[in-house]
Structure formats: C-alpha cells, structure tokens
Design a binder for these strands. Structure first.
Length: 571
DNA sequence: GCCGTTTTCGGCCCGACTGTTTTCAGTCG
C-alpha cells in the first residue's frame, strides 16, 4: 500500500506537535513541520522520487536524518519516532495544548504539577479550583478553558467565494470611515487559497484606535477577541475570524508581506535577511537601526536580491530560490484566457439556451467556447442520445453561421462507466470537436480500480480532456481514491490533457495536481463547467488555482488561439 | 533537526497582546 505525501506530512506534523508538548527544543519541532511542508509540496510522490534515486536530503528543510525517516515511512508505512512519542505523551495532552490560550508550555505544566493527562482531568482541576493556584494561571485563563471545554473550537475554513463576500462588505465598511489611507485583505485570501481560515486585513491610517473602533462597531461582529493599539481581532457572526492590523505608510509593504504570508515564506525571507546582516519584520527591512525598505513589497524583495514573488507562490515550495535567480514562472492571468472549453446549456442540465451562453462568452471577450452537455446517463434529457446530439450539432452550426464574433465548438462531457468504457459510442464521439471524459458515478471503487478505470477511459483516442478526476466536492464529498500521479503520467503518454475546474466547490484538480501536471508536461484546460451565464465569471477562481500551481500561459490550453487549441485537442 | 558567501558549530523570525505579574512568560499570527 503506497504512502501518500499528505500522509507523510501528517505524520511529520503530528510528531512536531508531540515533540513540542514533550518539551523538546521548539526549533526541533519546527524542523519537522518544515519538512512536512516540503513533502507536501513535492511535485510527485516521495515514493516515486526515491525509486528514481532522488536524494531527498537535497530538498530545502530536509536533512540526512529526515530523509532517512521519510524513506523508512515509505518502506514500512510506519514512523517509529511518532509511535514512540505517542506512547510517551498522550494524545489528550495535545488536545489540551490546542485549547486557545493554552499551549505546549502550559499543557506541560498542568500535566507535571497537577497530573492532568486528559480533558476530563482538566475539567476536574478547574472546578476544584486547583488550576488557578498554579503560578501563571488566573481567573481569566480559567474562564477561557471552561469556555473551550463547553464549546470545543472546530477549525472551520471558508470557501474563497464566501470569504470574499464577507471581506468586500467589511472592507467597504472600514473604508467608508477612512479619510485617507488604504485597506485590503492579505493572508491566505490574497494568496488565493481555495479556502481560508480567517481574514487578515491591513490598513494604513494615522488614527489606529479609530480603525479598531470602526471594526468593533461592524454590525456582523459577534465578539471582539483582542483590541490593542495596532491590531484587533474579532469574530464575525458567520464564525469567520478577522485580524486587523494598522500600519504606517512607510511600513505598508513590510506589513503586507508579513500579513500575506505564508508563514513558511516569511520565515524563509527573514532568514535570508539575517544571512545578509539585515533584519526583516512587519515594520520594514533594517540594517541596524536604519530602515532600508518597507513602503512596498517590491523594494523589500529587491533589497533581498529577489524578484517580486506573486502572492500565489508564497508557500516556501522553492519560489525563493527561483526568485533569487530571477527565474520565477510568469503566471497565467485572467486576461490570457481566450475561451472556455466546458460549459453547459439547457440542452442538458444548464439554465440557458446555447445562443445565450455563447453570447455571454463573447461578451467576456472570448474567441471560442465549447458546449459540453452531459452524455445520456445524466441530464441529457429524453430521446436517443445520438439523435439529440445531432440536433444540437445542427443548432450550434446555425449559431456559428449567424455570428462570427466567437466560435462555438461542439463537445460533450461523457461519463466514464465503472469499467472505464465511455457512455457514448465512438461513431458519435467522432463527430464532436471535443470529448471530455469524467467520473460521475461509482466514487467508492478501490484506489487501484478507480485509477485503472480512468486510465482506460483515456485509452479512447476521442477523449482529449479528463475532467473531475477526483470528483471532489468541497464540504460534500471527499476526493475518491485515485492515484493521481499514475493518471497524470498516463495522460502524458496518451497526449490527453487535464481539466482544472474553476468552480470553487469542486476544485478536484487542485493546485498541487496542476503543478504535478506541469512537471510532467501535461497541459491543463481551465474551465468553468458553467450552468448559467453568470457562472462563466468563475473563470477567475480557476486562474487563481492555476497560478498557485505555477502554471504559465503556455501550460494552459485555453490561452491559445483556436487553431492551436484544435491542434492540441486532436490526438 | 537543519543549515552554511562569518560553513561542520552554534545559531535558529519576531512583534503584539494578554494575563499574569509588578517585570514578564506564554501564546498567537
């Protein structure tokens, strides 16, 4: 049974946490966390890399020791150190340390002084009043602990689109009270992660306290957690946490850099500053007492000998080394997109007639669009699939004849059956400009069978694009078990392409998969799968994820003019 | 545990805020 990178990373993270609680040197646990991020960001599985003879200790953040540990995990599926740590420190102690306001030090203290080893123990020492007798503990902490015990905090993440709606409304509210100065959302929101845990808002203002008051007065604030001179934290009614920082204009770039993160990227930048005898913090880049940069991110990167790094790349996955050599990828952007290769109409389960969808695509400046309603198994309506498809082809021909602004292509999203055959016969598929194959049923096959099924579908030479390979629906359906690495390799061998679905609820080809596809030379189509004219606008979310996957315009099919697209789609 | 243009030892990001103290440790981002 192969061990996936995500599993290795989780083991390393868990070890880091238990090391911290066990009282190990914090920098040691940080080393494990850093290694976890490194493994997570690998373009292919650690197993494959090891088989290919790659020396993992050459990767940043992974040394000899951890390279050996990872090799052992791949070989045995077990992590000895983690097993030992689990026996030494109880998992419950980790749960105690996770309580907001507590941490590894306090958890350890409670364990040692009061013999607390479980949540129940903790409850007892609080109610008996023994906890508050400990040095460093008082009524406030006691209250915080009781609150956490009654209402355990569930780590909730918000889809980017939902967070965006909240953020824009809040920013409007904050700006409306701002005579001058700026306000914007940094954090994972600015890095365009598909989901965000909180909103980090940066503002410049001469009157920091006024900004804090304005935030606290926002109608959707459920409660104010902290409120200081330069920062404030509130929780909105939706449960979304908002961290606000106020900074001076001359520190704006430094604060933006700091607040945008990722944490790993910041730590790496600060280390780079230290190597050069400089100090980087959220107020600026300093040589001794003298600020040498800070007003803009650009001047800070430049002062560190780095090219400006787009927020989507700031994950410490190798971008800093490339920025140092001025070799960062030139990321695809929304304006590069020339068409949408996967949209639906009311011939299938879409809302709008073909003509409306095509006109809406033209209005967005596209030069082509492909109608890809589903095959007969679902949503393609009544009558024989062949007959309806032929009539649809006629209609598209009519629309093309009426307007030369945009080319409408004839496509289909065909179901991959359980055994890997397709839901429509070849003689029909051959009449279309584009066949997209997708898994839309039998999500629970074994990893082996699911992978074989998908690869078999790509054996059909009519299939140009594979969509929804993991069939993931955020919040509704876990990704099905697929060996994406084998799928991507198989796509490469067959000249098939992959679809990155822009719909935020089903980013089943995630940023890391996109990066892996690029690494193997497989091209990606960014498509909306739009069911309505409005959903065509989701393209930008797809571009966000493509950028996070390091994709350049040349990696993306629908950045090309139509003749080139047709060439790429022909197998 | 990792790392190196002060390189094989001795460092390791750093500031804001809170709750506890009465000068600071711990937590958080």
């Amino acid at each position: 049974m192969p061990v996936h990178n995500a599993e290795i990373a989780a083991m390393l993270d868990q070890a880091a946490e238990l090391l911290e609680i066990g009282g190990a040197d914090p920098v040691q646990s940080r080393a494990y966390r850093r290694a976890a991020r490194a493994v997570e960001g690998l373009p292919t599985s650690a197993e494959t890399m090891l088989k290919a003879g790659v020396d993992l200790s050459q990767l940043p953040g992974i040394g000899k020791r951890l390279a050996g540990e990872i090799a052992a995990i791949v070989a045995t599926g077990k992590f000895d150190l983690l097993e030992r740590l689990k026996n030494a420190a109880s998992a419950e102690l980790a749960a105690i340390a996770a309580i907001r306001g507590l941490g590894p030090k306090r958890a350890k203290l409670i364990h040692e002084k009061l013999g607390v080893g479980s949540i129940e123990d903790l409850r007892r020492v609080v109610s008996s009043g023994r906890l508050r007798k400990l040095r460093g503990f008082g009524p406030k902490l006691e209250q915080a602990i009781l609150g956490a015990l009654d209402k355990p905090v569930v780590e909730k993440r918000f889809k980017l689109r939902d967070a965006e709606a909240e953020a824009m409304a809040l920013i409007d509210w904050l700006r409306s009270d701002l005579e001058q100065g700026r306000a914007l959302v940094a954090g994972s929101f600015r890095r365009r992660r598909e989901s965000v845990g909180d909103l980090d808002i940066l503002m410049t203002s001469a009157q920091a306290s006024r900004v804090g008051n304005r935030l606290a007065a926002y109608e959707n604030v459920a409660h104010v957690s902290t409120r200081g001179a330069k920062r404030a934290t509130v929780v909105l009614r939706s449960g979304l946490r908002v961290d606000l920082r106020v900074t001076a204009e001359e520190s704006y770039g430094a604060a933006l850099l700091y607040l945008t993160g990722s944490k790993a990227h910041n730590v790496a930048l600060r280390n780079r500053a230290l190597e050069r005898g400089l100090k980087l913090n959220e107020h600026g880049l300093f040589h001794g007492e003298r600020r040498i940069a800070g007003a803009t991110e650009e001047e800070i990167y430049a002062s560190l000998g780095l090219a400006f790094t787009p927020p989507e790349l700031r994950e410490d996955r190798g971008e800093i080394a490339l920025a140092g050599m001025n070799m960062l990828p030139h990321l695809v952007s929304l304006s590069d997109i020339r068409g949408d290769l996967h949209i639906r109409s009311n011939w299938g389960d879409g809302d709008a007639p073909i003509a409306d969808m095509v006109a809406a695509a033209a209005a967005r400046g596209y030069s082509y669009v492909c109608l890809t309603d589903h095959s007969r198994r679902r949503g393609f309506g009544h009558g024989s699939a062949a007959e309806r498809l032929l009539r649809r082809i006629d209609e598209i021909d009519r629309i093309n004849a009426q307007s030369s602004r945009i080319a409408a292509l004839k496509g289909v999203e065909v179901d991959i059956l359980a055994d890997g055959r397709l839901d429509l016969p070849d003689k029909i598929l051959s009449r279309l400009d584009l066949v997209i194959a997708a898994v839309r049923s039998k999500f629970d096959l074994s990893r082996e069978r699911q992978t074989e099924r998908i690869i078999r579908a790509m054996d059909n030479r009519h299939v140009s694009i594979l969509a929804h390979p993991t069939s993931r629906l955020i919040g509704a359906r876990a990704p099905c078990e697929v060996d994406m690495e084998r799928v991507i390799l198989a796509a490469h061998e067959r000249g098939c392409h992959l679809e990155l679905c822009a719909r935020l609820d089903r980013p089943d080809l995630g940023d890391l998969h996109a990066q892996a596809a690029k690494a193997m030379g497989v091209k990606v189509a960014i498509s909306t799968d739009a069911r309505s004219t409005a959903e065509l606008d989701d393209m930008r979310y797809g571009v966000d994820q493509a950028r996070r996957g390091w994709l350049e315009p040349s990696d993306v099919i629908n950045t090309r003019p139509l003749p080139e697209v047709k060439k790429l789609l022909a197998r």
